[in-house]
Design a protein around this nucleic acid. Structure first.
Lengths: 358, 358
DNA sequence: ATCTCGGTAGAAACCGGTTTCTCATGATTC
DNA sequence: GAATCATGAGAAACCGGTTTCTACCGAGAT
């Protein structure tokens, strides 16, 4: 193969020194005489030598590579996390392996375990595994950082999103606008974030006089949201809470096709605030989670662990309500000025004082 | 560290055989007596042994990993290629390293070279390198597959898109609709695809009586498209040809904000057909390139090379004109029924009989 | 009964680095 | 001037596998 560079032995021979010395020079160990070091560098340059990362990995017991394991890379939410993670890792000279489990929980464990052997650490995003299986998996993956998923009893570094609060803000926003009958377009069954969002929404509806909630099994993609539109219309709700932005987009698109005006006739909200959300027509009201930051933070956490640093406090991101054009006063509502003040600027990470408590 | 499994020596000792025998059993070499093999398997299972991929990589000289190097991962176009590549590689038991060069041509060469040492092959997408530098880089990367970029004099496996034809189809579509004054929102300077698209567009305009073209330096993202809107309006064109879908989205959004109706007042077309394109309002007319396929094909090409297979014919994808709602008759045009027949179903890869010829 | 052959499995070399151990050298100290 | 010590660099072990080489064994052929 072409890119098979010179080996350390060849450099050693060319410079007339031992391999140990070459190694020391390449790694900047100070215990080499300047004159020798220069000779070694010259030989290395002449041969175009650079140490084999694979051989180094074996000798050092670390690969300078980390992995990102995710159920579905087609979701822009995860793509943003991926970028944040990848760029942050690159700054520290680490490479990133990406692996998709294709929304198949059964595949997740073997995939993660296999991949773990090739890398120094793993970032596991939005695992679709049941709590018990995840709790079993995590120790086999250490060091690992969980993103968008916590394990109740387990003390593992994780970056989470307060889905309940996010969805509560969205619901409050809709109630304020006069919507009383909401429909939830639910995400994948195995998704923990779907459960959280649903529970948050139920709670919000319970707490609000005269509010009703219809729950529709849906999915996590465009097509799912679009397909759900007839059912949405049939159920008579005026406010649609989609599992995520993608589903909301699908709903928006389906409603548009049916000639139903958003937000005049129906209001729609999403979750995540993926980059496209501000560019739809109308722009999507959503609960904004700082995806890129999540990736960067995940790296930061993992990096500390890789250096045997002290465990960091876990962080829960409180989504920020992002009010845009897809929500408006309910059709029959008494109208009047809408106050969007209530839920204001509460962005930024919140330190969770008791990481292992639910 | 936790996931440090047993080593081959431990298994050998436990089974009372040599390491060579364990290795043979693990790799299914037939030359081991059934009874011994069983003993080895039992020992391996008992110890939870699985061979170290790093050690294997060193011994075998291959890593079962490939890399995807791309200038900007925030573009959904590349994300789709990434997924196609990753999924196809996974089916063959290979892992994928992703690396972003952040649109910085100077970073590309060292990045690719460094990464090449950790993987068996590289897929290099939309390189921003000048032809001569790329021609110099490619041999150091072999085996390599180029996506969305060709090198004129060089015989290297590449998957390309016929940008000129795509843009010509788009222009023809607009001319048919009565648009005579077009504006092109140009992409990154270093982008070869931008040059191709621009040339194609110029040619189309030249060939059409009464057609005019305004060229605006723009960029490759949403924000760029949006920022260009005032200039678009000022230039008086009725048809906007954006460098890519992202830019088109930005334009769509900016025009909407200004209250300019699309397609009634201005028509907009993009390029790529990223997944979102069909869900904007109005849905975007664009030149559709099969991004996922591109990724899969890139793997297929690379896989053949990794097995010392014969060089494959290069493939040029002819984008398919995807007419959607963002284009309509020009405002002052004589109207009448619009015929969208002309450029019909010409999708699918085209074998390029002379790979090295331009 | 001896020679040869095919098949098994262990010993050892190898992949390309890093690091410990050891020894030789020159400087410092009493 | 001899003993002590710090320093620099080579030898060798090691990381955890794979593979070639070789020795041994029993079976079939002569």
């Amino acid at each position: 193969m072409s890119p098979a560079g010179a080996t350390i032995s060849q450099v050693a021979a060319a410079a007339g020194v031992s391999r140990a010395t070459v190694s020391r020079v390449m790694n900047g160990r100070a215990t080499v005489a300047p004159e020798l070091a220069e000779r070694v560098r010259a030989a290395a340059a002449a041969l175009g030598y650079s140490p084999s990362p694979v051989a180094r990995s074996l000798a050092l017991g670390r690969t300078s590579t980390v992995a990102f394991v995710v159920p579905d890379l087609s979701n822009p939410m995860f793509q943003s996390v991926l970028r944040g993670l990848g760029q942050a890792a690159a700054k520290e000279g680490h490479r990133l392996i990406v692996a998709e489990s294709n929304e198949d929980p059964a595949e997740e464990t073997p995939l993660a375990v296999e991949i773990r052997r090739r890398v120094d650490g793993i970032v596991l995003a939005a695992s679709r595994l049941p709590d018990d299986e995840l709790a079993e998996l995590v120790p086999r993956l250490e060091p690992v950082v969980l993103v968008n998923r916590e394990v109740p009893g387990l003390d593992v570094p994780s970056l989470s999103v307060d889905h309940r609060a996010g969805v509560r803000d969205l619901a409050a926003h809709l109630f304020e606008l006069g919507h009383s009958r909401l429909v939830y377009l639910a995400g994948p069954q195995a998704s923990a974030s779907d459960r959280e969002r649903l529970h948050g929404l139920r709670a919000a509806v319970c707490d609000t006089a005269g509010a009703e909630l219809v729950e529709l099994r849906c999915g996590s993609g465009f097509a799912d949201g679009q397909a759900a539109v007839p059912a949405v219309v049939a159920c008579g709700a005026s406010g649609v809470v989609a599992y995520n932005d993608l589903v909301a987009f699908g709903a928006l698109s389906g409603l548009h096709e049916l000639g139903i005006a958003v937000p005049e006739q129906i209001s729609v909200v999403g979750f995540d605030d993926i980059p496209f959300a501000r560019y739809t027509t109308p722009p999507l009201t959503t609960a904004s989670v700082p995806q890129f930051d999540l990736g960067e933070q995940a790296w930061q956490r993992l990096w500390v662990l890789l250096q045997d640093g002290p465990p960091q406090h876990n962080v829960t991101y409180r989504p920020r309500l992002e009010v845009r054009g897809s929500t408006g006063p309910a059709p029959g509502a008494a109208g009047g000025e809408v106050t969007t003040s209530q839920v204001a600027d509460n962005r930024g990470p919140t330190v969770d004082p008791s990481p292992s408590a639910l």
